[in-house]
């Protein structure tokens, strides 16, 4: 039952609806059910927020260390350096998001140009 399983126009859409939409909105709906029971300032909410942040943090690390697409061809050391310097600049300059992004992209692109 792969993406190419049925040679009809609608099968890819069914595939995306099940493996994409259902697979993500299931968790969103569950989040509504759980969130409706959480008090504004409860300890449980703090824990839930910490877990949500750590999950995104793991996605960040994965996007940088094990990327898909063109980023795969950039050396991993350069990717880590770009993220590290971007984050350092962000912290140093009053936590401005655009500063972090500008520095990280400058290091990523500059590094590739230097490496040839």
């Amino acid at each position: 039952m792969s993406y190419q399983w049925l040679d009809t126009w609608w099968w890819p859409y069914v595939f995306i609806a099940v493996a994409g939409w259902l697979a993500t909105d299931l968790w969103r709906w569950l989040g509504v059910v759980v969130g409706a029971r959480l008090k504004d300032d409860s300890l449980l909410l703090i824990w839930v927020r910490a877990v949500a942040t750590a999950l995104v943090a793991a996605v960040i690390a994965k996007l940088v260390l094990y990327p898909s697409g063109e980023l795969k061809h950039v050396p991993v050391a350069l990717r880590l350096l770009a993220l590290g310097l971007g984050f350092a600049a962000f912290l140093a300059l009053r936590q401005r998001v655009w500063v972090g992004i500008a520095v990280a992209l400058a290091v990523l692109i500059g590094g590739q140009l230097l490496l040839g």
């Binding site: 697979a23 968790w27 989040g31």
Partner: peptide, 25 residues
């Protein structure tokens, strides 16, 4: 396969649950 793709996507999306749960209140 469809089940394999579903599992991959759904595991990566568990974070949406605590995100929504912390946003709702």
């Amino acid at each position: 396969s469809l089940p394999a793709a579903f599992i991959t996507v759904t595991l990566s999306s568990i974070r949406l649950m605590p995100m929504v749960a912390s946003l709702i209140p």
